[in-house]
């Protein structure tokens, strides 16, 4: 008798799976591409990265205390990074402290890239194997975070910045947090 039930096992598995998919399709406007920003509202992860430039300083979370910073993950091989680059330069000229994490990139190529396009970053840390990226939960480059004086992540954008992102969201947010 118990043997008979074994033959019904595949059917049972199907029923569970189908119920699951049915629930997934009908409940909530779930966007599978949106992976959210779980860090927002939490303390920024601790990183301490070697500098990109020989004469630069280390990029460390500890040094950000008391300042509002914008942390930008970038790489020279990333075309969208090049697209958003002028916006970072403008933010930096307006006094925003932009920190760069050079993600999975060869230092020479990153240096050449910054020399060519201009350097908006107060400090640039190198993350050759993507470990800092894992700490911050980035899914790729470019991604940009805003961190307040207490070290709490306030904004996390997983896309190349648009002018609206830079000047209608990031700049006002930095200004407000800096008060």
């Amino acid at each position: 008798m118990s043997n008979r039930w074994l033959f019904a096992l595949p059917l049972l598995m199907l029923v569970i799976m189908a119920g699951f998919f049915g629930y997934a399709l009908t409940h909530g406007a779930r966007d599978p591409a949106d992976i959210g920003a779980p860090l927002v509202g939490k303390v920024a992860p601790v990183i301490d990265l070697a500098p990109l430039r020989e004469d630069g300083k280390r990029l460390a979370t500890a040094d950000w205390r008391g300042h509002v910073v914008v942390v930008n993950f970038f790489a020279s091989w990333c075309a969208p990074c090049q697209v958003e680059h002028p916006l970072l330069l403008r933010l930096s000229r307006e006094g925003v402290r932009v920190q760069g994490v050079n993600y999975r990139n060869k230092p020479d190529e990153a240096k050449a890239w910054l020399a060519r396009l201009g350097d908006p970053y107060e400090r640039v840390g190198v993350d050759p194997d993507g470990k800092a990226g894992v700490e911050f939960g980035v899914s790729g480059v470019p991604e940009t975070l805003v961190i307040d004086k207490a070290g709490i992540v306030r904004l996390h954008l997983r896309r190349p910045l648009t002018p609206d992102d830079a000047f209608a969201r990031i700049a006002p947010l930095v200004k407000e947090l800096s008060k």
């Binding site: 033959f7 059917l11 399709l25 009908t26």
Partner: peptide, 20 residues
């Protein structure tokens, strides 16, 4: 998605039910 799911459930479910 719902249509294919219903179809999948019907075809596979019919098959596996008959199997059981």
């Amino acid at each position: 998605g719902m249509f294919i799911l219903a179809f999948l459930a019907l075809v596979t479910g019919g098959g596996l039910g008959l199997y059981a």
